[in-house]
Amino acid sequence: MRQAALTAAQSSSLTMLLHDVRRVAGVDLTVGTLMAADTDHFVIDRLVGVTTEGLRNLRVAVGAGLGGKAMLLAKPVQVQDYCHAGGITHDYDAAVRREQIRAAFAVPVRVPQGPRGVIWGALRHEHVFGDRVIGDVMTVVRALERDLAEDLALNRRLEYLRAAAGGTRGDGRAAGDPVASVAERRRLVGICSELVHIASTTDGHQRQQIDALVRRLTDEALGDAARVGLTAREREVIGEVAHGATNQEIAAKLGIGAETVKSSLTSSMRKLGVSNRAALVAAALCQETRCAACAPHSGGTCR
């Protein structure tokens, strides 16, 4: 079995979710886990409100017990009294009794082509959870699913950037291979501007990853931008724009006036045929892509 490798942000989100579910459902305890999409077991590794260690690291099969049934059916399920309930297997009754669990519900967490998991809520007395409670829990879980989906989309964009920045493709070929690299870089042109924006709004390790990868890509692109007549100063200013600097910050760093920065950007945009800062960075990447594409047919010189 391969348990999902959670980032620090995902781990924090899952723990916060358990606290939210406990609050909105009014239950004594909540537990949960996320796992890789291609596994048939999962391990309970997040617990809130427990009084024993009976549920910690419990290995549950998809289809078994309450959580396994929720995962198999892809919908919430509940029992009024766990150890005496019909319709579920009782492989885990010993751990459930140790925690004195009676009423419980389980809600699956599903993300297309990504991790999946289960969230449980439980009371230490018999109870039937109403549709309103289950609906409130589902609302909270759906928010986590959206966060995970967005995180996966961002990670896919980072993988594209890693490939174009000289890493290794998923199929094992070097990203620097001209045939593969040109195709990948053409796809990257459309998302480079978006990533520059994401980097300005993202905190922590992902911000650092995006900044570093965009820097490597744009530095490489700007080396070819001279072929369209950009001056050294214009390339330098575009490089700072790619890293998210404002005109004032660029002026201070380069020791020039803010009006000089503005004039340089205006000139660069005119030469590259774009009208805004994000497009300027993407245009530099696009120019680099065209140069890479025509180099095999022109002895390394753009026509």
Rank of each mutant, 00 (worst) to 15 (best):
V21G: 05
A295L: 04
A164V: 15
R216G: 05
A282P: 06
G167Q: 08
A95E: 03
G172P: 07
A95S: 13
V137Q: 00
T246L: 13
T15M: 12
C83T: 15
M138Y: 05
L152K: 07
L18N: 02
V31H: 06
T231Q: 07
G68E: 09
A64D: 11
A295V: 05
T52N: 08
R162Q: 09
F105M: 14
R173T: 14
L280D: 04
R116I: 06
A226P: 14
E145M: 06
A180W: 01
G63F: 01
R207V: 02
A8I: 13
L161R: 01
R207A: 10
C294H: 07
G273V: 06
G255F: 03
K75S: 13
D38H: 07
T301I: 13
T201Y: 02
A278R: 14
A95C: 08
R173C: 07
R235W: 07
T260S: 13
D211Y: 05
C286H: 11
S200E: 08
A104C: 14
S268T: 06
A95K: 06
R216N: 00
S298P: 06
R22D: 01
R207H: 12
T289M: 15
T246G: 15
V133N: 07
A251R: 01
E288P: 02
G65R: 00
E236A: 07
A221G: 13
K271I: 14
V48L: 03
A4H: 06
V237M: 03
A61W: 03
L29W: 00
S13C: 05
S12P: 09
H84T: 09
Y160V: 15
A165D: 01
D38F: 04
E53G: 15
E236P: 11
I198E: 12
L285H: 03
V189G: 11
T289Y: 10
E234D: 05
M1I: 08
I256W: 01
R46L: 03
E234I: 01
N247P: 13
L272G: 01
D45W: 00
A225F: 02
G65F: 00
G176L: 10
H127L: 04
G135R: 14
G239P: 09
L34T: 06
